[in-house]
Simulated scan of single mutants.
Amino acid sequence: MGDLLFSVENGIARITMNRPDSLNAFSKEMILSWMEALETIRDSEEIRVVILTGSGKAFCTGGDIKSLINGGGFLYDDSDEKEDFTSTALARKNVLWKKVQRIPLLMQEIDKPVIASINGFAVGAGLDMALMCDIRIAAQSAKLGEGYVKVGIVPGDGGAYFLPRIVGIDKALEMLWRGDILTAEEAKEIGLVTHVVSDEELTDFVESYAERLANGPQQAIRFMKRAVYQSLTMDLRSSLDMISSAMGIVTELPDFHEGILSMAEKRKPNFK
């Protein structure tokens, strides 16, 4: 088995970070495999929903600190110059850009729902991976936090972009400046996670959630996602123009006609 597991079944893609002995800290193999998986998800019409989780007792603890201390770890570059986290400032910036930062950019290109199933520790860049998802569902025992300040670094993978959009500026700065670890319930109180369920129920709850979305009207769901995110950087007129165009398209699709017919016949719709 590799450092990242990727599978697709019944329209649901599953990405599992698979380094349980290292609390699913990033490795070079994991990052490269992740990029490949995200490109497949983005381009495949067969995939309707994505679930992201970790194996063992952690979701993800971000960068492998031991690897960084020993000479680069997941930021290691294969170039002849051997640019890594211990070399020049420009090399470190470029390696982040070439590898880790590709993930949020690819995630942003995916119109399908992406669900983070937070089964345990989600810290630093590991938490930021969950923030890139649309929905975050946490196990009761999960612990979440931004730990960058404890080692004197900054959130290099997009945490400073995603976090304030989810919890607000003041809470985001507090989390980043203090580096406190939150319980799942504390995270839910500030809007960091969408749902908290018992550890035993997590897998079934997430699967049921994903299946419901996978059985919905796909183009409408994707237009909704894009409209919500695009509207964060649009004025009202532009947003309304975008959504009216989407309305014109979806009302020509079979799912719209099935939805109207199922309501008239008082039955559950059968979207294709």
Rank of each mutant, 00 (worst) to 15 (best):
residue 262 S to G: 10
residue 207 E to W: 07
residue 107 M to S: 01
residue 217 P to N: 09
residue 87 S to E: 08
residue 149 V to L: 02
residue 145 G to Y: 06
residue 239 S to P: 04
residue 219 Q to A: 08
residue 182 L to M: 12
residue 89 A to P: 05
residue 55 S to E: 12
residue 200 E to D: 08
residue 114 V to I: 14
residue 118 I to N: 02
residue 75 L to K: 03
residue 192 L to G: 00
residue 16 T to V: 15
residue 108 Q to V: 00
residue 61 T to Q: 07
residue 267 R to F: 09
residue 1 M to G: 12
residue 241 D to E: 15
residue 260 I to C: 05
residue 68 L to D: 05
residue 84 D to T: 10
residue 237 R to L: 12
residue 34 W to I: 11
residue 24 N to L: 05
residue 157 D to V: 02
residue 195 H to L: 09
residue 98 K to I: 10
residue 271 F to M: 11
residue 227 A to R: 01
residue 70 N to I: 07
residue 44 S to G: 10
residue 13 A to Q: 02
residue 20 P to K: 14
residue 168 G to Q: 07
residue 59 F to M: 08
residue 152 G to M: 08
residue 120 G to H: 07
residue 169 I to S: 11
residue 246 A to F: 13
residue 106 L to C: 07
residue 11 G to N: 03
residue 58 A to G: 10
residue 188 K to M: 08
residue 193 V to N: 14
residue 248 G to F: 05
residue 82 K to D: 08
residue 99 K to Y: 15
residue 161 Y to P: 00
residue 16 T to D: 09
residue 51 I to M: 04
residue 37 A to I: 03
residue 15 I to D: 03
residue 246 A to Q: 11
residue 34 W to K: 00
residue 15 I to R: 06
residue 238 S to T: 11
residue 109 E to I: 00
residue 32 L to A: 12
residue 45 E to V: 01
residue 186 E to Q: 15
residue 46 E to A: 11
residue 229 Y to A: 00
residue 229 Y to L: 07
residue 271 F to K: 04
residue 117 S to P: 03
residue 226 R to K: 14
residue 145 G to S: 10
residue 88 T to K: 11
residue 214 A to L: 04
residue 132 M to T: 07
residue 88 T to W: 09
residue 20 P to R: 14
residue 18 N to I: 11
residue 187 A to Y: 01
residue 139 A to M: 06
residue 40 T to N: 13
residue 17 M to F: 14
residue 16 T to Y: 04
residue 195 H to F: 12
residue 183 T to F: 10
residue 23 L to F: 14
